[in-house]
C-alpha cells in the first residue's frame, strides 16, 4: 500500500505573517491515499496555520518550501482551484453568509466542483436526493437548509454543516480544523460518523485537534506533534494517549534533553 504515490507532500515549508512573524518553521509531512493524520500541539503552535496555508487562505507569506498535491506544486494556486481539485477545509469558525441560503450555497459548491471535473451541474431533483442522503449522516435539520448559511446556527449546527459539505463535495483530502472543539458528546459522535463515512482507502484526512476523545471514534495512522511551527514528534495512536496523560511539557523536555 505505502508504495502508492503520496497524495500530499509538504517539503520544508516556512510561513510567516505580515509583520515578519514566523509561524511555520520547516514542516515536512507526507500523506498517502487513505491515511488519517492527526496534528496536535499547544495553542499557537501553528496547527491552524498549516491547515489554512494548505487550503490557500490569503494573508500568509510562504517564505520557502513546497506543497505538492496530487503531484503538483500548488503554492500559487487559488483556493477555489484547490477545492475543485479535491481539497477541503472544515473551518474552525465557519463564516456566516447573510442572505445566502444554505441550500443555494451547497448547490453552488457542488456544481462548481462538478463543472471543473467536466461533469454537468446537478438537476435540482438530483441534488436534493444527494442532499437528503448526506444530511441524514450528520442528522442535519432540514429547516437549516432554508436559512442563511450558518446564520443563527448553534456551534454544533455550524460544525455539522461543515461535515455535511465534506460529505457532499466528497474531496480526496479533507482537513478538519478543530472541528471537535466545543461539541457535546452527541454532536461529536455525529461529526465522527460523518468523517468515517467520508474516509476511504482513497480519501485522506488531516485532523487538527486538541483532544484525544474524537480519536476514539476514528483510527488515525499517525499522530504528529507541532510545537513552535515544527513537527517535533510523530507516532501512532498511542502517542495521543501519552500526550493526554503527560501534556506537551513532556515533549518539550524530551526535545531539550536530545539537543
Amino acid at each position: 500500500m505505502k508504495k502508492q504515490n503520496p497524495l500530499l507532500e509538504i517539503k520544508d515549508l516556512h510561513v510567516s505573517v505580515e509583520d515578519g512573524i514566523k509561524i511555520l518553521n520547516g514542516i515536512n509531512l507526507t500523506i498517502h491515499p487513505g491515511e488519517i493524520h492527526v496534528i496536535m500541539g499547544p495553542n499557537g503552535s501553528g496547527k491552524s496555520t498549516l491547515a489554512n496555508v494548505l487550503s490557500g487562505r490569503p494573508g500568509y507569506n510562504i517564505d520557502s518550501g513546497e506543497i505538492i498535491f496530487k503531484g503538483q506544486n500548488i503554492i500559487n494556486q487559488d483556493p477555489e482551484i484547490r477545492a475543485r481539485n479535491g481539497m477541503f477545509l472544515a473551518f474552525q469558525y465557519p463564516m456566516e453568509l447573510p442572505g445566502v441560503r444554505t441550500w443555494q450555497f451547497l448547490k453552488a459548491s457542488v456544481d462548481a466542483v462538478r463543472l471543473h471535473n467536466k461533469l454537468p451541474e446537478l438537476k435540482i431533483k438530483e441534488f436534493d436526493k444527494l442532499l437528503e442522503e448526506k444530511k441524514a449522516i450528520v442528522e442535519m435539520d432540514s429547516e437549516l437548509l432554508k436559512r442563511s448559511v450558518n446564520e443563527g446556527f448553534s456551534g454544533g449546527e455550524k460544525k455539522r454543516n461543515e461535515i455535511l459539505q465534506l460529505c457532499l463535495l466528497n474531496p480526496i483530502f479533507a482537513m478538519l480544523d478543530e472541528t471537535d472543539s466545543g461539541l457535546d458528546i452527541d454532536a461529536l459522535q455525529i461529526v465522527a460518523k460523518g468523517v468515517k463515512d467520508f474516509h476511504s482507502n482513497i480519501n485522506s484526512v488531516m485532523l487538527v485537534t486538541h483532544y484525544q476523545r474524537i480519536l476514539n471514534h476514528l483510527s488515525p495512522n499517525y499522530i504528529h506533534v507541532l510545537i513552535d511551527g515544527k513537527i517535533v514528534k510523530s507516532g501512532d495512536k498511542s502517542l495521543s494517549l501519552e500526550l493526554e496523560s503527560k501534556g506537551y511539557e513532556w515533549i518539550r523536555e524530551t526535545i531539550s534533553k536530545k539537543s
Binding site: R57, P79, E80, A83, R84, L97, G99, F105, H116
Partner: peptide, 30 residues
Amino acid sequence: IDPETLFYMRSRGIDLQTASKLLINGFASE
C-alpha cells in the same frame, strides 16, 4: 464584502465572481 467570507466560499470551489454575486444578492434579499 469581508474577505474572510469570500475565502470561505472560495474554499468550497466557488469562484470569486459567483461568490460576490451570491453575497451581494444575499445582502439585498434580506
